[in-house]
Amino acid sequence: MNAHPTLSISNLSKTFGRVDVLRGVSFEAPEGSVTAVLGPSGQGKTTLLRLIAGFERVDAGRIEIDGILVGSPQVHARPDRRGVGIVPQEGALFPHLTVAGNIGFGVPRGSHARVAEMIHLVGLDGMADRRPSEISGGQQQRVALARALAPTPHLVLLDEPFSALDAGLRAGIRDEVIGILRRTGTTTLLVTHDQEEAMSIADHVVVLLGGVVAQQGSPADIYDHPASVEVARFIGDANLLSAHISAGRVTHALGEQACDRSDGDATVLLRPEQLAITSDVAHGSARAGVVERRAYYGHDGTLGVRLDSGELVSVRVPVDDLAPVGTDVHVTMRGLATVFD
């Protein structure tokens, strides 16, 4: 294990004109890890990647790769000397070169063995002489990955690499690409707006909202303990209910629990899977309501229930419990709600 994390970003800021695109962003990507930078479009993700790759200059803060400073207001290593591979959206293959020509672009001329190894790694044996226009979108994405990996970069950046693919193919190609990156022990930074994608493949998720790191941690950490209402709303489905704190207890539409915050108004988060439909109307926490919406997903479904107290909550239910709209039901909760000020 290296003494330094492969990528270390500290207090990074970037301004375009009068717009602060990134403000004081800090995080690290340990060697061999897969880190996802997650955020809606236009929140600075792309700028962050471009700064790391060296296409933009740093206004404030530092970027270190393998412990070497490559970007700061004083230092700017050229993109061709950073050893950072990139896999853009839609592949961006060189249309005038074959598959082998693309993969070999970044390695010294004559490194046929390396090119062949990479072609084999991404499972495109026999396709070396095809043109990019003659292969499928998923194959193009794999060529782009092999091309980025061929010069053995310190770090590979993936920029929304799967969003241009058909929904049906996306998951398969994603698993394949991440599998290759993990097998080769490549340190990976993935930028995406798709929270499901980030949560399912990353070791470490950095949530970027409005140019600042709203939260970072493991996917489970972020899902179970969102740091703010904004993060909670962005990651997964969220029931955010108004609540009141008084004398060490927080009270909301579905129950109450101990809370060490000071008295006053608050918001609580309950994930749809923390709620359930119950037939045990006598149960203490059961609350009456009417089904207002119904969504079927095959493996399960969700019900939008209008509680008698007025709130609309989303409840994840097994398919058997998908009651028709208009049905009177009772909702219970389990576990603890997350409380925000």
Partner: peptide, 11 residues
């Protein structure tokens, strides 16, 4: 994007 990719590949 082709220029950027080529740059990142050492050109």
């Amino acid at each position: 994007g082709l220029d950027d990719v080529a740059r990142s590949l050492g050109s």
